[in-house]
Simulated scan of single mutants.
Amino acid sequence: MTQAKYAKEIGIPITTLEYAISGNGSISLTTLGKIAYGAGIDPWELIRPHESK
């Protein structure tokens, strides 16, 4: 699935999705929830610290 198709499916503009993916700013909790639930995961999984091995 392309990013554009995913953005349309979850109801956000492609520019918002690209902005979120870039990590150069912040997005609303509502948008974070849409991205996460669209992927079938809980929002906290997108923001939790990376576990080092």
Rank of each mutant, 00 (worst) to 15 (best):
T15Q: 14
L17H: 08
I14F: 07
I14E: 01
G23L: 02
T16C: 12
I10Q: 07
A36V: 05
L29H: 11
G11P: 14
T15M: 06
E18P: 00
I12H: 08
A36S: 05
S26P: 00
K8A: 11
T31M: 03
T16W: 02
G33A: 00
T15Y: 01
A7K: 06
I14C: 01
L17Y: 10
G23E: 07
N24D: 14
K34S: 09
A20N: 06
I12R: 01
S22F: 01
S22L: 09
Y19E: 09
I12N: 09
L17S: 04
I35L: 11
A7F: 06
P13R: 00
A36N: 10
G23M: 01
G23D: 06
I27H: 11
N24S: 10
A7L: 03
S28Q: 07
S26A: 14
K8Y: 00
I10A: 11
S28T: 15
Y19V: 01
S26N: 15
E18C: 10
G11V: 07
L29E: 09
S28H: 08
T15L: 13
N24H: 11
I14A: 06
E9I: 01
T30R: 11
K34I: 04
G25I: 12
G25P: 00
I35M: 08
K34C: 04
Y19C: 02
G33M: 01
G11W: 08
G25Q: 06
G11Q: 02
I14Y: 06
K8I: 00
Y19G: 01
T15R: 13
L32R: 04
N24V: 12
E18M: 13
Y19S: 07
I12P: 03
E18I: 05
G33T: 09
T15E: 15
K34D: 08
I10K: 00
L32D: 07
I12G: 04
S28F: 02
G11H: 08
Y19M: 12
I27L: 03
G23F: 07
A7C: 11
K34L: 11
T15C: 08
I10T: 10
L29Q: 12
S22Q: 12
G25A: 15
L32G: 13
I10G: 09
G23W: 02
N24L: 12
G23T: 02
E18Q: 15
Y19R: 15
L17I: 09
A7W: 02
G23K: 11
L17Q: 04
L32V: 02
T16G: 02
L32P: 15
Y19H: 14
G11L: 02
S26G: 13
T30Y: 12
S26K: 13
G25N: 04
S26C: 05
E9Q: 14
N24T: 12
G25E: 06
E18A: 14
T15A: 13
L17E: 11
K34T: 04
T31S: 14
T15V: 15
I35Y: 02
I12C: 10
I35H: 03
A20F: 09
G11R: 00
S26Q: 14
E18T: 04
L29G: 15
S26R: 13
G25D: 08
Y19P: 03
I12Q: 05
E9N: 09
S28I: 08
S26M: 03
T30C: 08
A36I: 03
I27T: 09
T16Y: 00
